[in-house]
Simulated assay, not measured.
Amino acid sequence: MLPDASFEAPTDRGMIEAFVQHVFEGTARPVVDAGCGTGRMTRLLASLGVAVSGIDLSAGMIAVARGTSPELSFEVADLSELPYADMQLGGVFAWYSMIHSLPGDLPRIFSEFFRVLAPGGHALLSFQVGEGHRHLSRAYGHDVSMESHLFTPEVIAGLLAGAGFIVIAQLTRQARPHETTPQAVLLAHRPANED
């Protein structure tokens, strides 16, 4: 249903392009698409010249990503236990992936994002704005059973700060006709000088 990044709003694309520019100007290290699903955004980042790989908890999603984009690297992994060394990456891209994590798990996830980023590295996170959770039983024309969580930008910014990040840009936009909530994108970085 979402084969590529053409679904994304122009303002969201602007934040993605800002993230890519920061990665290019920063550490010149690779990026992980954390919670990549079928790899549609991984492909977008690669098309923009980013050295990117994808991880997802779902083996089925990773199988689709590998079949669709065999030239890219995809691995089954948990957001709270990233398969990277300390300070290995220049960017962490979490496009609507943390919405499937319990709110109590986010401090550990954001600490992992911080751990794997080199000083000066950047993280981009997107999510639906609100509070609480919602259960979907039907989506994209299929019967499903899926929980997702809503967050305010202030909550996410506070959790990122608690992990050591500095939020440098925030976008909150109104819902488009096919969306039920406002959407947010936060761009944060691990300080280059950590004194």
Rank of each mutant, 00 (worst) to 15 (best):
S80P: 02
L106W: 04
S148A: 10
E154R: 14
M146R: 08
S97I: 15
P70H: 11
M87E: 06
L187Q: 05
Y140T: 10
P107G: 08
L117F: 07
E131Q: 13
T180V: 03
Q88Y: 03
R173T: 06
Q174A: 11
S73F: 08
G162K: 13
D143I: 07
I62T: 00
T172H: 12
M98Y: 13
S137I: 15
R66H: 04
L125D: 05
I55Y: 00
V116W: 03
G164W: 05
N193C: 06
F127R: 09
Q183G: 01
E147Y: 13
E71P: 06
Y140P: 01
G91L: 14
Y140W: 10
G120F: 05
S73Q: 07
L124C: 03
S73A: 12
L117K: 09
R134V: 12
L89R: 07
I166P: 02
S148F: 14
H135R: 15
H133S: 12
M146T: 04
E131K: 06
V155Y: 12
H135F: 15
I156G: 13
M98H: 15
G130D: 05
E81I: 02
V155N: 04
G158L: 11
R108M: 02
R108A: 15
E154L: 07
L150G: 06
A188D: 02
P177D: 12
H178V: 01
M61S: 14
L106C: 08
P107I: 06
V116D: 00
S101M: 10
M98E: 09
V76C: 01
R190H: 13
L106M: 02
V64Y: 00
Q183V: 12
L171W: 03
Y96V: 14
V64N: 00
T172V: 12
L150E: 06
P103D: 14
A118D: 06
A157E: 10
G158M: 10
A118T: 02
G141I: 09
V185D: 03
G90A: 10
P191D: 06
F127Q: 13
I156M: 14
F127H: 11
L171E: 06
P103I: 09
Q128M: 15
E71C: 08
L159I: 09
D78M: 07
L136R: 15
G164I: 13
L89I: 05
F74C: 06
E131L: 00
S111G: 04
G104M: 04
G104H: 13
V129Y: 07
L57N: 02
L187H: 08
L124G: 01
D56V: 04
S137D: 13
L89W: 09
V76N: 02
R173H: 02
S97P: 07
A139P: 00
T68Y: 05
H178S: 10
R108F: 03
S58T: 05
V185H: 00
G60E: 15
E154G: 14
R108Y: 06
L150F: 14
L159F: 10
F113A: 01
R66M: 01
D86I: 00
A157N: 14
S145W: 12
